[in-house]
């Protein structure tokens, strides 16, 4: 084992900056070797650190799936909801306590297949939610079935001769539905992704970031695309940063170019603002600001 011993001088008080944000008693996590979800969690933690967010005021909501496990590993207020229902739960959470920064951290299957309707309606209302979608282009946890995001000609366990259905273009869908902020990165673009996540903490309204992530066990293996590292090299080679590109031209293909960048950053009144202005308009002087339900509740944090 002597080969593995580090020859570097490591200060005694050194610690991994990610660890205080994770439930370390649950490590090692369930994600496969070469899966990129852990990398997105790193970026998320860096964004939290850089934006100096108050962790008592941040909540993570996820649905079901590989990415859905993030809520279970995050050492902050988090909820692991039923399949596809992360956004409705997060909407309720945000409306009950508007001070919270509600982050929806889920996968493409959960957000766009099972919970597809919830996504478009939350974007239409411009609910103040931060949606991070880790897109591995497949239903990974259930055994690699075709998802609405699986690109054409890819082989999956339910499409042994290749997928022939057209796939969703998530960024275009989010823009058309009315999201305030739309960006796409891959797990190769860690710095840009962390910066984008930091930006959405400061942005009001419905924010959406799509992160392409390798799925070496099911997607890459079945399509003979190598392991996680091969996928990362492909992201490095095939991605082009084009900020503000028209999202309709940014569809993903199996092995073509990946357009990444910040596509949409606009200001629209969010749901709570619209609700308030409607109430003021209808009730006039009779309108009173609602009392915060959780104002007196004592929140303690073990950090």
């Amino acid at each position: 084992m002597s080969e593995m011993e580090c020859v570097m001088e490591i200060p005694e008080d050194a610690f991994n900056p990610v660890e205080p944000f994770l439930r370390m008693d649950r490590m090692p996590h369930i994600w496969c070797a070469g899966c990129g979800i852990g990398t997105t969690v790193n970026c998320f933690v860096r964004a939290l650190l850089n934006s100096k967010a108050d962790l008592d005021k941040v909540a993570i909501v996820s649905g079901i799936g590989c990415t859905g496990r993030v809520a279970g590993y995050a050492q902050m207020d988090s909820f692991h909801t039923t399949h596809g229902r992360a956004i409705p739960f997060a909407t309720g959470l945000k409306l009950a306590n508007p001070e919270l920064q509600v982050v929806v951290y889920s996968g493409d299957g959960d957000l766009f297949a099972i919970g597809g309707n919830h996504f478009i309606h939350a974007a239409r209302r411009n609910m103040d939610l931060k949606v991070i979608c880790v897109n591995n282009m497949i239903y990974a946890m259930t055994g690699g079935q075709s998802a609405p995001t699986t690109p054409g000609h890819a082989t999956t366990s339910t499409a042994p001769y290749g997928v022939f259905e057209p796939a969703f273009n998530l960024v275009s869908l989010a823009e058309a539905a009315g999201a305030s902020y739309v960006a796409r990165w891959t797990t190769y673009h860690v710095m840009q992704l962390a910066r984008s996540m930091e930006e959405i903490f400061k942005k009001k309204g419905f924010c959406f970031i799509e992160v392409l992530s390798p799925c070496p066990t099911l997607y890459q293996r079945r399509n003979k695309m190598g392991d996680g590292l091969e996928a990362m090299k492909y992201y490095k080679k095939a991605s082009k940063i084009r900020h503000g590109a028209p999202t309709s031209e940014c569809a993903l293909t199996k092995d073509g170019e990946i357009v990444v960048g910040k596509f949409v950053d606009r200001d629209r009144p969010d749901y709570l603002e619209l609700l308030r202005s409607q109430m003021v308009e209808s009730l006039g002087e009779r309108y009173a600001e609602p009392e915060m339900a959780c104002e007196d509740a004592e929140v303690t944090c073990s950090l």
Partner: peptide, 27 residues
Amino acid sequence: HPPNVVAPEKCSGCDLCGMYCPDFAIF
């Protein structure tokens, strides 16, 4: 097979390895 430090004198401490590591095993 975990990684091994082969050129310690070159390390700039940029923490890019920590950003990439999906298993929170390096920083």
